[in-house]
Design a protein around this nucleic acid. Structure first.
Lengths: 352, 352
DNA sequence: CTGAAAGCGCTTACAG
DNA sequence: CTGAAAGCGCTTACAG
């Protein structure tokens, strides 16, 4: 049904080579010939078969983007940034939801390698497990051996995750989650808070770990806060309901706590909901802070204190690095330092 | 660098046909042979070339998803739903940001057709322009002639957009935006509002038009409200800042208005911000309503009255329709009727 | 159960 | 500037 190059060639009375040259514009062709070819293309509504072209020219127009879930604003923003760069290069972004499942991450890596994708960017925190990370490293090396590129965005460099092992140098746009979290909790301590709850993210996740570490590090500078707050850490996921449940649990552990830090903004939303339900005012009774500065954080009430990561910008950078439009950073790692954004959801600790 | 089927065949001491059969498991192969082949595959870290396979078998593993912007929650949710279905079929979703630009929409349609994508789903409101819609219809027909499928999700059926012309039957998951908007404004009128502002969406967009029509239709039932509110319509985009600016303009036109309806939830966020800035209470002074029921709408303060569209669900359905996993609905159109969700941002009209 | 061979729809040296 | 031909890496009748 669909016309092929040969059909076009026949109709234009030229060879397929000539048609190919006209279409790719990478070789001189007589004006008249070109005209005849283009007319034939038009008459036949010819659309080149990119698969065949890719095979013959051994190239690919595909770029893979692995996310937990595109519907999660964090990933949506990063993906959008990458997509913007990819689009400028006339490539097609294949965006895959892994749901944070390492199996699916590896599976998609394989599918993308089958497609001979030009590269793939792994976004968000990594599943922090030696076996899995080694598998990722292996896939990345394999990918690279085939001319593909792997870039990470929002996770630590493989070398840091697999210390002592020689992992392939995978370009990384890293987020200083630890530093950001530390600054955030320090901000609360400076406001006089000592009983600070923490609703953490999913287990075995590098982002979870880094943020929690930053929090603990800040407490470490302040013995009194540390003593009171160290027991106030509950696990969860990067979801609203996790914040809702987590806040309930924290209040059970210490009804007198004066602040709650959430693993990210979505979690903070749930924390706020749980507090409101108990008629605790924010920040009057309890200060609340999130992480990421997702767009909605400006419009919660009160606006959320958080740590800003320029996610779209990070995605764009990852995209440029992948496409070779930007020089590799020293050591293959570009680190983004998030910025504390103090808004109205945090205030001075309640007197008690 | 990369191993090919021939390499595997040679190493296993069989023909390429046999390797292909082992890999595809679609043909009987002796157990011993299979074993040798699989070992060779493993030893060579062979990864099949999907492009070559697609060419030879004339299939494709790609499905296109056209969105305005994945970072916009509306589109993120829809895309996530489609992706879920696509993934179950072991296909790869190519998610493209058109930015609402008709040119880019057509361009991506071409790129996806070049890839011989199995299908593509067009999401969100359509650019309502005859020329463009005819071009889309033509592309869709062409796509279909090549065995691909085009599904729409969140826009009216082509037949409705190009009345009287014969457009290709493109399966459509439509949203009854008009009905939802009408119910929303009726809700406000029932609360005693007569001076109702409306911050509309981008021009030439089917969603914008349908929602505005629903609003006007509700006013039509109530002469007093209609007289006061008809002049209170301002244009904009589906973005927060548009709501912010729009609310300012509306208050200029009628400082005494008691309600503002926004084209969607993001716009409503901006409206709320503008009202807060003027120290107008919601809903005490002014009621505010949005559309879509995006996740954050539950957590604004007060929670946003809105019209719920099950976006992920809609995406899944579009995905199933595209993959032929669900029977075509009668007339090729499945209409989703959004549901009014009355929350605390709307209340009785202020006495004056 | 297995293989030789044609073919999928392109690109690209090579030769003219 | 143009064409004949080989080749990209698979799949799939066809034959055995």
């Amino acid at each position: 049904v669909t016309a092929t190059l040969a059909d076009v060639a026949q109709r234009a009375g030229v060879s397929t080579a000539t048609v190919s040259r006209v279409l790719n514009g990478n070789y001189p062709v007589a004006a008249g010939t070109r005209k005849r070819v283009l007319r034939a293309v038009d008459e036949l509504s010819y659309v080149v078969n990119a698969q065949a072209r890719a095979l013959a020219a051994s190239t690919s127009d595909l770029v893979g983007i692995l996310v937990n879930d595109v519907a999660d604003p964090f990933f949506g923003l990063v993906a959008s940034g990458i997509q913007a760069e990819v689009a400028e290069a006339d490539l097609l972004p294949v965006i895959c939801n892994t749901g944070g499942d390492p199996e699916r991450e590896l599976n998609y890596l394989t599918l993308l390698q089958r497609q001979r994708a030009r590269g793939v960017v792994l976004t968000g925190g990594a599943h922090d497990d030696g076996r899995h990370l080694r598998a990722v490293a292996e896939r990345a090396a394999h990918f690279a051996s085939g001319g593909g590129r792997v870039v990470q965005c929002g996770r630590p460099p493989l070398a840091a995750l697999l210390p002592g092992e020689d992992s392939p140098q995978v370009t990384t746009v890293a987020f200083d989650n630890r530093g950001g979290a530390r600054a955030l909790t320090a901000h609360l301590i400076a406001l006089g808070h000592t009983r600070i709850g923490y609703v953490s993210g999913p287990e075995h996740n590098t982002t979870t770990t880094a943020r929690l570490k930053g929090h603990l590090r800040a407490l470490d500078d302040h013995p009194e806060a540390e003593a009171a707050s160290a027991p106030l850490v509950v696990g969860g996921a990067f979801r609203r309901d996790s914040g809702y449940d987590g806040a309930a649990e924290l209040l059970r552990r210490d009804p007198g706590l004066t602040a709650i830090v959430a693993a990210n903004d979505s979690v903070a939303l749930g924390v706020c909901a749980a507090l409101r339900e108990r008629e605790l005012s924010i920040p009057g009774d309890v200060s609340v802070a999130g992480f990421d500065d997702l767009p909605f954080s400006l419009d919660t009430s009160p606006p959320l204190t958080t740590v800003r990561i320029p996610l779209t910008e990070a995605g764009r950078r990852a995209g440029r690095l992948l496409l070779g439009r930007e020089a590799q950073p020293p050591g293959g790692v570009f680190t983004i330092h998030p910025e504390l954004v103090a808004r109205a959801s945090t205030g001075a600790a309640r007197k008690r």
